[in-house]
């Protein structure tokens, strides 16, 4: 069984011309756990991973795998398997030949090609040219490439992009199984909800800088639960809350009260004789905690000033996942 190694970034900075893509980034990734590497598009995730893989030379700092830089690894594909976002295939080459080329280059046995095609479920399409592949099949082929050398470290950039629900379920189980075998698994995504069911730890970056790192559950404490309350007479409601000493902000769908208990707010409205038309916990989950962290950094103002409470901030409908079995998400359920 291949052994995982610690991935370590130490003060990595990368500037492209005058643009700083990654700024003084330091963190480590432990074996035996699935680590989510999160941040909005353009945060510098891909650049960071390319620095780790020796494809991009950092302006300063360095990234190592088990203490060794990628370019100095004696057998890179046996140590690290990486799938990067870009579709790196010659469209006229078959999947089997694509894998064979790199198996030869890395000195791996040819039998591995058929094994990994089987692992990712592409055995029936191995002799098809990659140009005819769907996005999901390309993702699987990218994954097959990472497994060629049976490495102890897996680095996957947006592996869930373009997969169908079946494929997403499959890859979640796959990531878990890899980590349980003791491998190091680093998975990037711009959506926490995509990976929150499979990751143990999160590393969040925004604008090239680290904004949060720790176990997934540590994200929850980032957000105090709040109550959304509304009334046909919003001014009267605001006055009542003010008298009761509850801090609140005015949002699009009502008032956002900084109190943990809906019953308390209901009581205040009732005793003030104000009709209540809406009263529920703010549907803030991990995704919102994530977005708040990211936006804080991006725009330099605190997340409580975002009144559009129930809308996913990036306009993508991934915010509430019906299959959400995430055990830490209890604080985020609507009332």
């Amino acid at each position: 069984m291949p052994v995982g190694a610690i991935i370590e970034f130490s003060h990595v900075t990368k500037r492209f011309g005058g643009v700083t893509a990654v700024n003084d980034l330091s963190f480590s990734v432990e074996p035996g756990r699935v680590t989510g590497f999160l941040g909005p598009n353009g945060a510098g995730k891909t650049t960071t991973l390319r620095v780790l893989l020796g494809l991009v030379t950092p302006t300063s700092g360095m990234a190592t795998i088990g203490g060794i830089r990628y370019r100095s690894l004696p057998q890179p594909l046996r140590t690290v398997g990486a799938a990067l976002e870009a579709a790196s295939f010659h469209p006229g080459r078959t999947a089997r030949n694509h894998l064979a080329v790199y198996a030869i280059a890395a000195g791996l046995p040819r039998a591995r090609v058929d094994e990994v095609l089987h692992t990712v479920g592409l055995d029936a399409h191995g002799d098809q040219r990659v140009g005819g592949y769907s996005l999901g099949m390309r993702q699987r082929l990218g994954l097959a490439f990472t497994l060629l050398g049976d490495p102890g470290v897996l680095v996957l950039d947006e592996p869930i992009n373009g997969l169908d629900p079946e494929g997403i379920k499959w890859i979640r189980g796959f990531l878990r199984a890899m980590a349980d075998e003791g491998r190091t698994v680093l998975v990037s995504s711009h959506l926490l909800s995509e990976v929150q069911q499979s990751v143990d730890d999160v590393i969040i970056i925004a604008q090239g800088e680290l904004v949060h790192r720790g176990p997934l559950s540590s994200l929850e404490t980032q957000i105090a639960p709040r109550i959304i309350v509304d009334s046909p007479d919003r001014a009267a409601l605001a006055a009542a809350l003010g008298r009761a000493g509850i801090e609140f902000t005015t949002g699009r769908t009502g008032l956002l009260a900084a109190a943990p208990d809906p019953a308390l707010i209901g009581h205040i409205a009732f005793t003030a004789g104000v009709e209540v038309s809406a009263l529920h916990r703010q549907k803030k989950g991990l995704e919102d905690a994530f977005l708040a962290l990211v936006n804080d950094n991006a725009h330099g103002h605190p997340h409580d000033e975002h009144p559009n409470d129930e809308q996913p901030h990036d306009g993508k409908p991934h915010g509430s996942n019906p299959n959400d079995t995430e055990p830490h998400g209890t604080g985020g359920e609507p009332a």
């Binding site: 020796g54 990628y70 690290v80 990067l84 790196s88 010659h90 280059a105 490439f145």
Partner: peptide, 16 residues
């Protein structure tokens, strides 16, 4: 072709 199809990535991963 290596630049165009971005196959430099797997090429340099397999042999840096």
């Amino acid at each position: 072709g290596e630049f165009r199809h971005q196959t430099l990535t797997p090429t340099f991963l397999a042999n840096p």
